[in-house]
C-alpha cells in the first residue's frame, strides 16, 4: 500500500518540474537557497489499488525504505541489462518485464507492488529505447548521476525539445499539416464539439 510516487524536492524550478536536471538543481540551491531543501523530498500518494468509496482518505508516507532502494537503480538496472545493451535487447527486456509486472498478468495479491515496478520499468524503457534520450541519460550517468526513477527526473529525457529536433517528426508534421489544412476547410470531425461550436457560432455571426 505504500507509495511509489516520489516527487520532487525542487519544485521551484520548473514548469514540468520533473524535467529537472540534477545539475540545475545543485545550481539552484545556491541561487535560491532556502526553498528547495525545505520542501519534502518525497511526496507520496496512495498507490493504485482499486478505488473504493471507503478509501477516500489520501495518505502521505514519508519513509519507504523498500522503494528508496530501488530508486538507486539505474534505468539499465531496472531493465536488467548492461549499459552496452542493444536496442532490440532493450525491447525484449521490456516486454519480458511487462509480462511479469503488468497488472493484467501479475498475481492478484501483488498487483500494487508490481504496477509501481512496471511504471518504473516503462520510464526506463521510454528513455533507453529512444537513442537521443539514451545519449543524454548516458552522459548524466557518466557524470556520476546514477539514478533511475524519480518523479522529478523522469521527464528529463523526454522533453519536447529533444523530440522537436528529430527528423521523423518534421517529416510527418509537414504531411499532417497539409492534410489538416485541407480537412479543416470543410471537415470539422477532428475537432472537439466545443471548438466546432465556437466555429459554428463564428460562422453564423459572420
Amino acid at each position: 500500500m505504500k507509495c511509489c510516487y516520489k516527487s520532487s524536492s525542487s519544485i521551484l524550478s520548473t514548469n514540468h518540474h520533473h524535467h529537472h536536471h540534477p545539475l540545475f538543481y545543485k545550481q539552484q540551491i545556491s541561487s535560491l537557497p532556502p526553498l528547495p531543501s525545505s520542501f519534502p523530498s518525497t511526496l507520496s500518494y496512495p498507490t493504485r489499488t482499486r478505488f473504493t468509496s471507503t478509501r477516500i482518505q489520501a495518505r502521505l508516507i514519508h519513509d519507504d525504505p523498500v522503494k528508496e532502494s530501488s530508486q538507486d537503480l539505474t534505468f539499465y538496472d531496472l531493465l536488467g541489462v548492461t549499459d552496452s545493451v542493444t536496442l532490440p535487447e532493450i525491447k525484449q527486456a521490456y516486454k519480458q518485464l511487462a509480462r511479469k509486472y503488468h497488472p493484467d498478468v501479475s498475481p492478484p495479491d501483488r498487483v500494487e507492488e508490481y504496477t509501481d515496478r512496471f511504471i518504473r520499468v516503462q520510464e526506463a524503457y521510454e528513455t533507453l529505447s529512444d537513442p537521443r534520450r539514451r545519449v543524454l541519460y548516458d552522459r548524466d550517468l557518466s557524470m556520476g548521476f546514477s539514478f533511475s526513477f524519480s518523479g522529478r527526473r523522469r521527464n528529463r529525457y523526454d522533453e519536447e525539445v529533444v523530440e522537436e529536433k528529430s527528423e521523423w517528426k518534421a517529416k510527418w508534421q509537414s504531411q499532417l499539416s497539409g492534410l489538416r489544412r485541407r480537412s479543416n476547410q470543410k471537415d470539422d470531425n477532428s475537432m472537439s464539439w466545443a471548438a466546432r461550436m465556437r466555429r459554428q457560432r463564428q460562422d453564423s455571426s459572420s
Partner: peptide, 19 residues
C-alpha cells in the same frame, strides 16, 4: 486525480491531499 499543497518550510502537505 490527486492534489496536494506544499509550502516552503513544511515537510509535508499543509492540508489533506485530495483524491
Amino acid at each position: 486525480v490527486f492534489a496536494a499543497v506544499l509550502m516552503p518550510g513544511s515537510s509535508s502537505p499543509v492540508v489533506p491531499v485530495i483524491e
